[in-house]
Design a protein around this nucleic acid. Structure first.
Lengths: 257, 257
DNA sequence: ATCAAAAAATAAATCCTATTTATATTGACA
DNA sequence: TGTCAATATAAATAGGATTTATTTTTTGAT
């Protein structure tokens, strides 16, 4: 089982502040709770034990427990009502785009369909975002995209972690440059998809060259203000990502059997 | 100023439980807080007053305040750190898809760009969702789409509220039938867009007929399992929605000047 | 026996006080 | 001037007491 967080170089939660190895009571509680819900240990529709039992079970104070509940209720995972208790809401209410939830999904129950949805969404959204970026990116936004690309080139096959970080930044910067707030909401999902692909695939050094060329195409089209070209180039790029993920999944499947 | 919630027939928060006219301390506090942040009264990057002052300002207990903070921090709007205080995070971290946040945006600062992003996203996503729905909707999902359509026909121009509700359900059901969890995350945003258009436009009774025909096209294509046709029909449908919104915005603009 | 109104019981919601912990700031010292 | 330790501050955590909203049960009338 792949423990996903603590001490990782790249994590999902997008906070700019460096990770502190330590975890507060609240953080741990949140993660444990979300994991139990996502894993189904606390089933949808079921009612949680009351406060007293939960404080005992998790060995935390009522305050911490209640605050964790508030947080989780903001994610659409539980709802508390007086007298009726706290119940786990059905999945369709969950906010999967939240880093904590997404992380739990990826480590606990990311099946083929899950990745397929993610890559389908990318294939739809990112080309559109690239086109919009080509149409109306500001100078600053263009710079950020360019910068990310240069960082990728710089890292190349030497520094895998820097490569990943720059790749992530490249895609994020394009979505940001689209100027569409709805698209921006997907940044976390796309980051998750990329992180997953980094986890799954062991990029052969030769494919770095190919990847760089495809990224270059996207960047050039955006810089030349050619929306259609940008869209097309991004479609190509995501197409590669899709086949990489598929191959990785196929491998891990055969390895498992 | 349009007070958006309490007692509305159609609201954004998707809870299936009927609205109770009353509002708990927590609900009120949440809304007040979110409004202050969205409106900019509590500016991005600024540090909130400490707990003592806030409890006085909002006239609630520390417990309620802290729980509200937890909730809001789950929405990516604030971050608390010991000693440093609680700061308002930059907008790019906010979860705009949360009903409370979206509602605040719509009532406080929904400009043309905001609606443009929303409609662009719909134009991108819903056709794709319709295509997927045509490809793989289950019998149950097909039924839900059909049911929503029939409700629209039934309501027609007689019952405006029922029409709106059915329209909402139609689009939601299609997204749901796409089977893509990423698309499903958009449901709230699309509901918001529709609600906004209901608010903005006073549909002439003749256009109901046209709307029904276009919805019929989408439904038929999905039923006949023709993804491309479904996609095209949905593109047409959203195209109409786009021009309606644009016209309504143009009117309200000229009315304002 | 049936149904409705009143009472009890339960679990969350709210309020409060005390203590601990993390960290920004300050000041002493090299 | 820069480093390190002391200090102060604000959040984090703990837990007791009370209130409120509901469900369930009981009671009472028909």
């Amino acid at each position: 089982m792949t423990k996903a967080r603590a001490g990782r170089v790249l994590t999902l939660d997008g906070d700019p502040i460096a990770e502190h190895g330590k975890r507060s009571v609240r953080e741990g509680l949140l993660q444990r709770f979300i994991h139990r819900i996502v894993s189904g240990e606390l089933a949808e529709g079921s009612t949680l034990p009351n406060e007293a039992e939960l404080t005992a079970q998790f060995d935390v104070s009522r305050t911490s427990l209640r605050e964790a509940m508030q947080y989780i209720s903001a994610l659409g995972m539980v709802r508390s009502r007086t007298r009726a208790g706290t119940t786990v809401l059905p999945r369709e209410n969950w906010n999967y785009l939240d880093p904590l939830v997404l992380d739990a999904m990826l480590t606990l129950c990311a099946d083929e369909d899950f990745y397929a949805s993610l890559i389908d969404a990318r294939q739809l959204l990112e080309p559109a975002a690239a086109a919009q970026a080509a149409a109306k990116a500001t100078a600053r936004q263009l710079y950020q995209i360019s910068k990310a690309f240069e960082d990728m080139v710089e890292a190349n096959s030497r520094d895998n972690e820097a490569w990943s970080r720059a790749d992530l930044e490249f895609h994020t910067a394009i979505i940001d440059a689209s100027g569409n707030w709805v698209y921006r909401q997907f940044a976390t999902a796309i980051r998750a998809a990329l992180l997953a692909s980094f986890r799954l695939t062991n990029r052969a050094s030769q494919s770095h060259e190919q990847a760089i060329m495809k990224h270059q195409d996207v960047l050039d089209a955006i810089r030349m203000r050619r929306p259609e070209a940008a869209k097309h180039a991004m479609e190509q790029l995501i197409g590669v990502a899709r086949s990489e993920i598929n191959e990785a999944l196929r491998k891990s499947r055969t390895a498992a059997s």
